[in-house]
Design a protein around this nucleic acid. Structure first.
Lengths: 207, 207
DNA sequence: GTCTATATAGGGATAGAC
DNA sequence: GTCTATCCCTATATAGAC
């Protein structure tokens, strides 16, 4: 792997492990066994590195958000969608942990993240509307719109919430499954018995 | 006002306005027209100042969370409760904007905030249960428990969500009213027609 | 209680040799 | 592309005079 790419990989790992504010350009260079000067040959500054990582993140999350087709006509579609989202959230979790600070520091990031968040709401809405069309979900338009926003908000901040509320020792993967099922539970009141059963089945398997 | 208290007041204002990571002890001293040395006479370090501010915050939020009695037997009780919570959130908004970073840096803060968050869930649950007992809310125990957690999560992260999603020019107070009604809307599907009407009335008045 | 002066340390970033 | 050396700047924190 080229040095330029290794910087991104190493920085992402350190940011996730230690938190972006606690990782300096020197740390990154140290961890890679290259000199700080070398790092600055490849990237203009620290924010430039963050910006490049963000572009990777943006591509991944957008690829999930543009294909909201319901396949199995059941809550499994929503479950799959949420799994894909949470997977990306975990991979780039440093962004979510320091979201406001990063948005205030890097103007482009603010604009782009805002757009992604709107897209999240919209995609959730489309899935819910499709499920409603298939009589899987039974709720009026206002409720569905509200649920979509709630899904966007919760999938964005669940990670922080779980850090705040759970013990540090608690298994990382469990926290996420917990988040996904928390969101599914929000939709549960608007499902018929069969779909509710399926939810319980999913919970039994993965929680 | 004594210098010791003025530090707290000034620091809180600057933290909220500029973000805690962007405010140094020198900035605070500068703003107060005292010397940095003077500031360090009153407080051991920056985290000590933050900790003292947090103790104020904790006292205020706990006073709200220990008195969850339903008075009017309607959604107005929940509305009032959320208003009180959001008011405190705004007053100490720097805490919420950099929550994870602060929790990781100040161990006491982590423990205490975790406790407050649990208390928030519990208080929301108690209000919902009382409303259920009075036939104002109509939902099973699982749904109510889920709603309570959702209320705690949303009231904690709404501020960040609104920063992320709304234009910077958008009126601060409007953002918060929006958050409160977003939460009330989550409960709306479980209300009878009369309570839903009251919600619409509240929305008309304040949104 | 308050000030001035300063020690210490660390991070961001660049110049110039190889 | 990479390294060494270094500069600049800023933040935290302390010592000692008043």
């Amino acid at each position: 792997m080229k040095t330029k790419d290794r910087v991104i990989v190493t920085a992402l790992r350190l940011f996730n492990e230690e938190g972006e504010p606690n990782v300096t350009t020197n740390h990154i260079a140290d961890e890679m066994d290259i000199s700080p000067g070398n790092l600055y040959y490849h990237y203009k500054n620290k924010d430039d590195i963050i910006w490049q990582i963000f572009l990777q993140y943006e591509a991944k999350i957008k690829s999930i958000l543009v294909t909201p087709t319901v396949e199995s006509a059941s809550m499994k579609d929503m479950w799959l969608f949420l799994n894909l989202i949470f997977e990306v959230v975990v991979e780039y979790r440093f962004l979510y942990r320091n979201l406001i600070q990063l948005m205030n520091r890097i103007a482009f990031l603010k604009r782009h993240f805002r757009h992604i968040l709107a897209l999240k709401s919209q995609t959730a809405l489309e899935i819910l509307q499709q499920l409603k069309g298939l009589d899987v979900v039974n709720a009026d338009a206002v409720t569905i719109g509200n649920l979509a926003d709630q899904i966007a908000l919760t999938s964005t901040f669940w990670l922080n919430y779980s850090i705040a509320i759970f013990d540090d020792g608690f298994d990382e993967q469990k926290k996420l499954s917990h988040g996904i099922f928390h969101i599914l539970q929000m939709i549960a009141p608007f499902l018929d018995q069969k779909q509710k059963k399926m939810l319980q089945e999913l919970a039994r398997q993965f929680l």
